[in-house]
């Protein structure tokens, strides 16, 4: 079902774009009316993309969506690049993306003086290390890279928080007494910024500067999000499913395994998505203030020594980690819940 093409409209939109930007440029309006420029350009761009989108046949729609989803951030980067190169943006604070990319490459391939490792460790040493120390040596090589350190903290903390979170949330969802007793406390602790309890958590560990307290705070953050969502998921199960299960002879364990757990799973996953995002936020914050390794540490370090392109490189790596982790969880979700 393709709609008729109207070249006139398309030409009109394109002409408006060119004309508007020409006027803005030659009348030197950008300086004081940049907000107008941004607003009108954004509106015209949306109009253009949407108009073109109408001609895209249904089977190419997904590809077109993908092009838009990837194309827009690239466009933003291009705008940033031009503005930084022409000194519209101060390149000291907003270095052009091309320089950030170079910085990212340097961070990945060169070891820094203070941590003697790169973002990803020193993979170029793998063959040599494998010959001398075997697999443990290889693992140690990986474990030293900033990205892996951060990922390990996020992952271990997340798992250590989510599993008890699911357990406690289940109990709260199924048992009224437990729920009534815990609900207020949970809601109160839930709103507390978890980074605020980091100093106390440090004191609870034999080695306050080791991995223990960092992972613990991530776990605590994940725990509350997952627990509260699991409880909601259990409580939102339509009672008719529970009646049906009982009517068909399910015992307590079967009721849990066949109805309550799968019934709550969608909301549990929603909670885990939130928890994973929060885990990343928390760990970066902790690495800012107290860590010798990790992407957050690297980012903050280069901010302190004013190498801004490397700081931005760190920020981009953090965003990239967020996207990858969320995507991984989504894949897992589709595997575990094929009925959705």
């Amino acid at each position: 079902m393709k709609k008729q093409i109207s070249w006139q409209t398309l030409a009109l939109i394109l002409a408006s774009l060119v004309l508007f930007n020409g006027v803005m440029l030659f009348a030197h309006l950008w300086q004081n009316h940049w907000w107008l420029g941004v607003a009108v350009n954004a509106a015209l761009l949306v109009a253009l993309v949407e108009y073109v989108g109408r001609w895209i046949p249904g089977r190419f729609q997904r590809i077109y969506d993908l092009v838009l989803a990837i194309g827009f951030p690239i466009l933003l980067l291009l705008v940033w690049e031009t503005m930084a190169r022409n000194n519209i943006l101060n390149p000291r604070w907003f270095p052009p993306p091309s320089r950030i990319a170079v910085a990212l490459w340097q961070l990945s391939t060169q070891v820094d003086k203070f941590s003697h490792t790169s973002l990803w460790g020193r993979p170029w040493l793998i063959p040599q290390r494998f010959l001398s120390q075997g697999w443990p040596g290889v693992v140690a090589l990986f474990a030293e890279g900033h990205v892996w350190v951060t990922l390990m903290r996020v992952f271990v903390g997340f798992v250590l928080g989510a599993i008890p979170g699911i357990f406690v949330g289940m109990l709260m969802g199924m048992n009224r007494t437990i729920r009534t007793m815990l609900d207020t406390t949970m809601s109160a602790v839930y709103v507390l910024p978890k980074i605020a309890i980091f100093p106390i958590v440090m004191l609870m560990f034999a080695n306050p500067f080791g991995e223990g307290p960092k992972i613990a705070v991530v776990a605590i953050s994940a725990f509350f999000l997952v627990a509260i969502n699991t409880m909601t998921g259990v409580r939102d199960i339509d009672p008719v499913y529970i009646q049906a299960a009982r009517n068909y002879g399910a015992n307590r364990w079967q009721l849990f395994r066949h109805v309550i757990f799968p019934g709550a799973l969608p909301v549990i996953f929603a909670g885990m998505r939130l928890a994973l995002g929060t885990a990343l936020i928390v760990i970066v914050a902790i690495e800012f203030i107290r860590a010798k390794k990790g992407v957050g540490f690297l980012t903050f370090y280069y901010w302190e020594v004013m190498v801004t392109e490397k700081m931005y490189a760190g920020l981009f790596v953090i965003m990239f980690l967020g996207v990858i982790l969320t995507y991984g969880l989504q894949r897992l979700e589709r595997r575990i819940m094929p009925w959705r």
Binding site: Q243, A244, A245, G249, Q254, H258
Partner: peptide
Amino acid sequence: NNVVFQEYAIFPWKTVIDNVAFGLEMH
């Protein structure tokens, strides 16, 4: 006894055949 519910109450997370086999599985 077994009930056919007003709201169907078949489990969205089970396939059609697993739904039908549900009572037998419970036993």
